[in-house]
Design a binder for these strands. Structure first.
Lengths: 139, 139
DNA sequence: CCATTATATATTGTGCACAATATAATTTTG
DNA sequence: CAAAATTATATTGTGCACAATATATAATGG
């Protein structure tokens, strides 16, 4: 077997799936005017308001080079506020505005819409998630 | 269950895995001086030399906005040549240089190194690939 | 206490990824 | 055949993603 053939690649389907997911989210999140990475940041903040850039980055595996400009865009949309911590001036604390909180209501149906679009049995989805978590812990 | 909790997200692990894979490839492909998307284009060309931009794009699900600059970078590395088709002046045919062909030898061990890094049984990998393909056909 | 080290965020630069649009060549149609 | 529609690639603009570096603040050790 030729391991350099595209059809024998294991990672290419994963790479493709991730892109297609983000594309699907583009239409689902259009109404919220959020990109997928921005939506992820909002998920983190909806769970717990007022978190530092690095705390958000640890949860999403994103560094300041990605988050700083992204958070500035969320600030321009007026759904978050960026504020230097008084206790530690190195840290920037991100908090939700009223509009940012309200956006959660509009997002309620997004997860189910996504699962519907993938149209795969929940049981199979669990197996998939298990395999992915296993690979992630190895990589 | 709160469907907007990060830990309940199905797509976040897929998005994370795709990124981690690309990161792993970054070190594996360092010697070849290729990025992962560039490596994918080379896989396509190693299978069949002399393909149009759109033919490559169909196989990799990438459009000209992504491929045109990427292919120009491969041309600068002198591993491919870009040439307008004489039969149809709209098309640009991409072909491998001698150096481009030779690079395949250096790439031989990349797939196995990647599978090793993921360290997951081949059988489980097959199940994973099946689920992914199913979701992809739905999305 | 002050020099050193560590930490947190920001900045710069490169390379995708994709929408929208532009341009040029080819095909189709009236 | 000429106008209209289609096709192929290129360009522009926005937004990640990450490496490398810079800057400012805080913690620490002699």
């Amino acid at each position: 077997m030729d391991h350099l053939k595209l059809e024998n690649q294991v990672c290419f389907p994963i790479y493709t799936l991730a892109k297609e997911m983000v594309n699907k989210y583009r239409s689902l999140l259009e109404e919220l005017e959020l990109t997928y990475p921005q939506y992820l940041v909002m998920l983190v903040l909806w769970e717990k308001d007022e978190q530092s850039v690095s705390a958000i980055g640890e949860k999403l595996n994103l560094d300041s080079g990605t988050l700083t400009p992204l958070l500035k865009r969320l600030e321009q949309k007026e759904i978050v506020i960026r504020k230097r911590s008084q206790a530690d001036e190195r840290m920037v604390v991100i908090s939700l505005t009223a509009a940012g909180h309200q956006l959660k209501t509009k997002a309620q149906n997004v997860p189910s819409a996504m699962v519907d679009a993938m149209s795969i049995p929940v049981a199979e989805l669990k197996v998939l998630k298990n395999s992915i978590d296993k690979i992630l812990s190895n990589l």
